[in-house]
Design a protein around this nucleic acid. Structure first.
Lengths: 206, 206
DNA sequence: GGATGTGAATGTCTTCACAGCT
DNA sequence: AGCTGTGAAGACATTCACATCC
């Protein structure tokens, strides 16, 4: 079952969201057709994606909603909680720290750091912003599961290096730079500038 | 020169960022090798991407930094300004509206809307939050160039429909749902839940 | 009957490797 | 000599189409 492609993983995450909707409505089975309709893909794609992890559907019937949802949560590793540290208490960091939507899926923001003295000490939703220089000593018993880098571009690589040093293995990067990290560390980038420029390109070429 | 692939566009945006760094430092030429090193790609990829738009480098030398930067800005459509409307004045909408980074690249947030009475009327950086129900009548002289949907999931499709009705052709969607729009409207999605779940998957499968 | 599961075909993107300019 | 530009090869991802099973 090794080596699942990145696009597949991202679709699984989408499927799970739809399944949870169906779950809430008490629907018991769902076809690949229905799952595809609400996502941005095709029935064949849904079946191929799911078949990579085993046969979960019943021919002639569809997929059992609660079982499939549970299986996807298991595959994606969502049955547990993750401790999340946010580095950078600017606009983005603040929105992330205060946003409640992640918590419901097990991503719990437990730490917020910033380098700026004016920010350090502020409390958001009972979460205190700590000096980033203290970060090194804050995790004697193991690093955060996930770190979110929301610093200015010029500080991001530095912060990433420190996180790697702490033993962080997963980074969500909002800074508009490519982070160089060892092979065993996973980085996902969220880069709004790229998205806007891709829109700009699309507007121009029609 | 038709039909450039999406991944290529996104890399062009990255290249441009690096070129602007080099520009700032007064560097006159840059090799595909150097451009690749700072991005997350290879020299061959850089050359292939750039060659899709013509021959801009000099063999044995590299690419002329200012010219290439100008050409990329032109290709991406960044020589002009875009009027941006943000729909949804929650955490994300607020961060977006207040974030100054976009303005420097020509994306100017000029309107912010929300459906919640408590939010309507607030002013952020001199920008007043307006009632989303008034949106329809706010653009007699043409729609915003780009709309950013930062509403809760259950309102997003509704808002998208209205935006399409206004004539908006480019949408950046932060709501965790797939937006159905006509073919001539471009949507880019930013979905932090997917990114986090992809990280979760990576953490679990090592 | 109806929908899955899957090899085979197709399409898309990346990498290779080298001829060709400067 | 050095580095680009590009056809060809290879890897990867999606779609098709149909046998298979409930």
């Amino acid at each position: 079952m090794r080596k699942i492609a990145e696009p597949t993983i991202r679709r699984l995450s989408l499927y799970l969201r739809f399944l949870e909707e169906f779950e809430g409505r008490g629907t018991l089975t769902v076809s690949s057709e229905e799952l595809a309709h609400r996502g941005a893909t095709t029935a064949a794609q849904v079946r191929k994606d799911l078949s990579l992890f085993g046969s979960f559907g019943k021919r002639g019937l569809g997929y059992p909603v609660p079982q499939l949802a549970a299986r996807l949560r298991d595959i994606l590793g969502l049955e547990r909680d993750y401790g999340v540290a946010v580095i950078g208490a600017g606009k983005v960091g603040r929105a992330l720290a205060q946003y409640g939507g992640f918590a419901s899926r097990g991503f719990r923001v437990r730490w917020v750091y910033d380098a700026h003295p004016a920010k350090v000490g502020m409390a958001w939703n009972g979460l205190r912003v700590r000096d980033v220089r203290l970060m090194r000593d804050d995790f004697p018993g193991g690093a955060p599961d996930i770190a979110i880098v929301a610093t200015p571009a010029d500080a991001a690589q530095d912060v990433a290096d420190q996180l790697v040093g702490l033993g962080v293995k997963a980074i969500l990067n909002f800074a508009p730079v490519h982070l160089a990290v060892p092979h065993d560390v996973t980085v996902k980038n969220v880069n709004m500038a790229i998205e806007l420029e891709a829109l700009s390109y699309a507007l121009r070429h029609r």
